[in-house]
Design a protein around this nucleic acid. Structure first.
Length: 509
RNA sequence: GCCGCGUUGGUCAAGAGGUUAAGACGCCUCCCUUUCACGGAGGAAUCACGGGUUCGAGUCCCGUACGUGGUACCA
């Protein structure tokens, strides 16, 4: 009987939830759900200097919007509380002390200045590694050469200290990554990482191991930027005596900038005009607002979909997936090894596909609120839905609906008369005057009747409907866009149609 | 610098020794459409380089180049 699958997303609440972060959540979530396991949210807030108010709530809101809700977490509780590392301080200290006792870690009393001096010295000697490691720890200020009694005296005297892991050189640490296969590291290149900071808080390295163990995590998926510190974590699992319970690892490829090179950052979004965060994030310190996919008009279904296939595919030609399909088909082994450049054009294509795929009712409210925010109140839901249905083919973002359909509710402010003037003549003028008269008499204000009336009068004036259609369109919508003219006329109604034609006609005299 | 990871069209990518090297986005052309889209049909465009192994290599091995990540009392 294998253990129940348990995965975790462990963000540091420092503000904003990045695309890559959401993808990590998604892969965790898909894997957990596929295996009928648990998805836990753990807040890695061990760096007090980076505390950002509201960041934790923001992350939870983002997950909620995406529909990737954790089974356990600080907001919902669970069997392994607490889920904030700042509240689990005592656990870490206990295990760090244990490691010291077992000879796998030691106290270090060096000040930052002393460490900096050591690095400078190494640099001056032309050494390549600027590490606190087996080659340098002998000359540093730590408990290694001291007796337990001496050490205790220093600590009791109030000397600030950290606890460092003691890495033995010359060992090969290897492990199986679910995506990359066997990965090897030589401990010659790994330094004596700090496990417990001077303020008593653990570093990520200690905390992640302790919590993954205590929370019975079976599979740990994280960004590729963690790969180099994997040997430290593995050693910790070993030294703590838990190696048989170590989760299986998977290091996810990074999401890169679309142009140039490097990891995608929030700055790139500003620079290139696309969102990087899931939802709007306002930095409480600077007041700076970073735009989110949600507010820019993305559907969560599309956001999830595009993230899922950025670095993963099921080997078929399918590209559009519902969350349930993803849960069924996702496989961590098929995740690409290389980083992927983010392509905003394709992201928008996904959104467009989802707008067309989903029933209007599922996003109608979002668009409605969007209209309200722009000062357009919607009273007639029936008409509103009809309009959305009519224009959805030409909207890639939810925010596009406004421009594509305001004219259904308010007469256009500007009429593009320049597009009709050059070919305007008295005959056309006469045609429209008569059209207005005929429209006013129509009993059944319906698409087909309007079109027939239009064509009959055109024929009577020996005009081709084609040369009349564009002027009519411009009179109704203001420009050269929008759905079929008679669809528009039938929705806005007789009174409004007649009014708009008359208005434009008035511009010619 | 050192260590790790990676490298198929502009982008996302399929491909697990023998294929005309899929597909999608974007771009271009045409059709449909009496606007713009949607839809449909085409098109241009790719295995980083050099050595091996093999009858045969995008696929396996080794180098090189390039990219990327790490190298903190940040995660």
């Amino acid at each position: 009987m294998s253990k129940k699958v348990r995965v975790r997303f462990a963000p540091s609440p420092t503000g904003g939830l990045h695309l890559g972060g959401v993808r990590t959540v998604l892969y965790n979530y898909l894997f957990a759900k596929q295996h009928k396991g648990d998805f836990v949210l753990r807040i890695e807030d061990t760096d007090q200097s980076r505390y950002i108010a509201g960041a934790e709530e923001y992350i939870i809101d983002c997950l909620k919007w995406c529909g990737l809700n954790p089974d356990e977490g600080p907001h919902v509780g669970g069997d392994y509380e607490p889920y904030r590392q700042s509240q689990r301080k005592d656990f870490y200290k206990e295990f760090a002390e244990q490691l010291v006792k077992d000879g796998h870690a030691y106290y270090a009393f060096d000040t930052p200045e002393e460490i900096e001096a050591m690095r400078e010295k190494q640099k001056a000697e032309g050494k390549h590694t600027l590490h606190y490691d087996h080659s340098t720890r002998g000359s540093m200020h730590n408990s290694l050469p001291l007796s337990p009694k001496e050490t205790k005296e220093i600590i009791d005297a109030g000397t600030p200290y950290v606890i460092r892991i003691k890495i033995h050189p010359g060992e090969i640490i290897s492990f199986e990554d679910m995506i990359r296969g066997t990965v090897e590291f030589n401990t010659d290149n790994v330094d004596d990482k700090v496990l417990l900071k001077a303020d008593g808080m653990p570093t990520y390295h200690l905390a992640v191991v302790v919590d993954d163990y205590l929370m019975k995590i079976t599979h740990a998926f994280r960004g590729e930027e963690w790969l180099p510190s994997a040997p430290v974590h593995i050693l910790l699992w070993k030294y703590l005596g838990w190696i048989n319970d170590m989760p299986k690892w998977a290091h996810l490829p990074l999401i890169l900038k679309p142009d140039g090179n490097g990891k995608l950052s929030k700055r790139d979004g500003d620079r290139l005009g696309f969102p990087v965060f899931a939802m709007n994030w306002t930095d409480p310190k600077t007041g700076e607002l970073i735009k989110g996919f949600k507010e820019l008009g993305f559907l969560p279904e599309a956001f999830i979909n595009l993230l899922a296939v950025l670095g993963w595919n099921d080997g078929t030609e399918q590209e559009i997936y519902t969350l349930d399909e993803l849960i069924e088909k996702f496989s961590i082994e098929r995740v690409h090894h290389a980083g992927a450049k983010f392509d905003y054009e394709k992201a928008k294509w996904f959104n467009h596909e989802w707008i067309k795929k989903l029933p209007v009712a599922s996003w109608q409210l979002t668009v409605k609120n969007n209209f309200i925010n722009r000062g357009l109140l919607i009273e007639d839901d029936n008409k509103f839905n009809k309009v959305l249905e009519l224009v959805k083919d030409r909207c890639t973002l939810l925010t596009d609906f406004y421009e594509q359909s305001v004219f259904f509710f308010v007469a256009p402010e500007k009429i593009d008369v320049d597009s009709i003037k050059p070919k305007w003549n008295d005959n056309k003028q006469m045609f429209f005057i008569e059209l207005v008269r005929a429209f006013e008499l129509i009993q059944q204000w319906q698409h087909d009747d309007l079109e027939n009336t239009f064509k009959e009068i055109a024929a009577a004036h020996q005009l081709k409907p084609g040369e009349l259609m564009l002027p009519l369109r411009i009179m109704l919508v203001g420009g050269k866009f929008g759905p079929g003219v008679f669809d528009i006329a039938s929705v806005i109604g007789k009174e409004e149609t007649v009014k708009r034609i008359k208005y434009t006609l008035g511009l010619f005299v």
